[in-house]
């Protein structure tokens, strides 16, 4: 299944160079892949995966290993950030 992975702020360093202009990369994943598995595959520091959204909806830490991604969804991840 096709899923879009978006990494922002300092996590964008983990993207291929050409993908940093958009903060996004297209992934082809086995059905049922979870956000936690993507985080592990991409060797993203767990402590920096603070804000995890799937199609804009927050996925709590306890659900990141069980929430199955679906075709066409967007997984977006930020380190601890704030603003205002």
């Amino acid at each position: 299944m096709k899923v879009t992975l978006k990494l922002y702020a300092t996590l964008s360093d983990h993207l291929p160079t050409q993908a940093r202009k958009t903060n996004a990369v297209e992934l082809d994943l086995p059905a049922g892949t979870s956000p936690a598995q993507v985080i592990e595959t991409w060797s993203l520091p767990i402590k920096l995966c603070h804000l995890v959204l799937v199609d804009g909806v927050f996925v709590p830490p306890a659900e990141r290993a069980t929430r199955a991604l679906a075709e066409g969804e967007v997984l977006a991840i930020w380190p601890p950030i704030a603003g205002g």
């Binding site: 922002y8 930020w78 950030i81």
Partner: peptide
């Protein structure tokens, strides 16, 4: 900075 919120 605060601008990190734009994409969020």
């Amino acid at each position: 900075g605060t601008q990190v919120l734009m994409n969020v």
